[in-house]
Design a protein around this nucleic acid. Structure first.
Lengths: 342, 342
DNA sequence: TTGGGCTATTCAAACGTTTGCAATGCCCAA
DNA sequence: TTGGGCATTGCAAACGTTTGAATAGCCCAA
């Protein structure tokens, strides 16, 4: 059952050389007879030699592996980020080990521990909804261990972060709704302990103010789960209770937006003529629902690439986190579709 | 920058003991003074000792890591499978290292190589659309290296596979359309080099035959990309060219189904009254499109769990692949929604 | 003959663990 | 006094690789 891998020693024995010579020959060190090099390489080929990465890791205390900790893979946005991470890591010769926390703090902590045991060179994290205290991160940062946060980032000193411009995206989306003539715009808000939720909410409010509309707290309703069922229920209820009838919804994610759309249809309201809707993330299905859903595009793939670049540069000491405070913010883009254009 | 991890040697030095004693004390070996054990454990705690998994791997030629190779993460179905894999591996103390091939054969091969270099204990694979020759798999299987294939499985001897009942799912879906009174049912088929595509196509044909309808090759149209744009285009064209007007579509995946739905709406056809549509996979958005889309549910999470169980059992020698030929088939379930019920 | 200066190779230690075997020290019986 | 038996601990090798330092062999000049 064990895959009998040829080692440097096997090559050495076969050619009556020492392991060191073989090692050097394979790496084209100077001072090795070129005929010897040739023979070693030929034998390596013949025995299908493949360096043992584990031994290398041990030797160098470097594993060429980075860890990725995310809440859930089954999430269009996160999976695009993973793609970006994978792509960049792969091209620079690193492996990616992945765990999801399922939004549980305890899983988050234990993931970090196993990863550290596995001598990962650094870690990319988007933390769970349960995480409110960031000590397990600060500890590592203080020790100088390479960590880059993406999307959901903690507000702690010295954290290197990559986010999208949530404020700007929300601002633009809300502005767009106003320009389309909608006035009573409800915001379906995300969990308030995530900075991204707060940013989106603030972007929404800022846009209203700039348009001369005073944000009404009653028009900001929490949809912390972010599922369409939740939003559908919330919005249905809202349509009956609010005295100032809402004529638009800006949701903190696309699923809530679709939930709102379904509730509106159910209530006999026309989208977009009577009600405008804009989501956030630009999931695949935005162009598949009817009417198609306007949404704020977040560059997930780019976020993965950028975070990984920062992390690897840090690992490879191409930049010094002590000196260069970095919080990279990627631009969003409003994709207008049928649901908000009348 | 290096995270100065305490080692067994540090504990030993601190207590004036040998590394072996410390090792044994930590593992509760008999024949170690209990007072010594206590002291060692206390010191381990104090120094925040964490065993170096790399050293362990080297020592045992076991990494407690499994590899996962999939075409794309950004794929609702695959991400649910990953969830299942993660869950099972995690609970049994294994790490998961992940790579995606982006449907490229060359990436598939190189992924396998890096993984082998990293001494993974086994690998889970769903191969790329480009892969038509399975030698790189057979080689490993012949050497007794633990591999389990899932979803996209090769037809080669001794392969351990986990699939869903694609034939059955397609059969049931088609049968359902017939029962709803649809007669001219078009099948939007997947890439024919994947067994799953062929199975779905055959399930469709078998259901027609059983219903006394002779399958018409002209009604089986390829949508190899599986995107909604492709399907929309294909179906639009179809509606004009086919002399026998289709009144239903059974698509090999949900995105194509939505594409078909969009094309029908565009052509002014009512779904489901004039045209019935059923997809395959039951992606999240099935319940978000309008009308909601009927689809064949594939148990992705369960597939992940099952594949991982088989792989780990093999690795841990709880079953012998030489003796027990295993191809596990999970049941699918037709979820009927508005798009196919009149 | 001595030895300086090459080239090509080997030695040995190290990374952090585990583990078979040997060693130490002590008690107690013969 | 000898030594058997026991409890406890240490030694050293091994996993596969790298790398600084040492060595071997040779040529050539003085």
């Amino acid at each position: 059952m064990k895959l009998e891998q040829a080692t440097i020693k096997d090559i050495a024995r076969e050619l009556n050389l020492s392991a060191s010579t073989v090692s050097r020959a394979l790496k084209n060190y100077p001072g090795i007879n070129s005929e010897t090099k040739r023979k070693v390489k030929a034998m390596a080929e013949k025995l299908n030699y493949r360096p043992n990465a584990i031994a290398l890791s041990l030797r160098h205390s470097r594993s060429f592996t980075i860890g990725v900790i995310i809440p859930e893979v089954v999430h269009f946005f996160f999976s695009t980020v993973i793609s970006g991470i994978e792509e960049e890591a792969f091209s620079r010769g690193y492996n990616v080990i992945l765990t999801q926390t399922n939004e549980k703090l305890i899983r988050e902590k234990s993931s970090i521990n196993t990863m550290l045991s596995n001598q990962i060179d650094g870690v990319l994290i988007s933390y769970s909804k349960e995480t409110t205290d960031f000590e397990h991160f600060s500890n590592l940062i203080d020790k100088g261990f390479p960590i880059v946060f993406f999307d959901r980032v903690p507000e702690i000193p010295k954290a290197i972060t990559v986010t999208v411009d949530d404020f700007g995206g929300a601002f633009e989306a809300t502005k767009h709704l106003v320009e389309q003539g909608y006035r009573n715009i409800v915001h379906l808000a995300g969990p308030p302990n995530l900075k991204i939720s707060r940013e989106r909410s603030e972007g929404y409010q800022a846009a209203l103010r700039e348009s001369g509309i005073t944000p009404d707290p009653a028009m900001i309703v929490p949809c912390p789960l972010g599922t369409n069922a939740e939003a559908q229920q919330v919005v249905s209820k809202l349509l009956h209770t609010l005295k100032k009838k809402p004529d638009a919804f800006f949701a903190h994610n696309d699923m809530s937006a679709v939930g709102a759309m379904m509730a509106c249809k159910e209530a006999g309201l026309q989208v977009p003529s009577e009600v405008g809707i804009v989501g956030f993330s630009n999931w695949q299905f935005c162009s598949m629902v009817d009417p198609t859903l306007s949404s704020v595009y977040q560059p997930g793939f780019e976020m993965g690439v950028k975070s990984t670049q920062l992390l690897l540069d840090w690992i490879e000491k191409k930049f010094d986190p002590e000196k260069s405070e970095i919080s990279s913010v990627l631009v969003t883009e409003l994709i207008t579709r049928q649901s908000s254009v009348r």
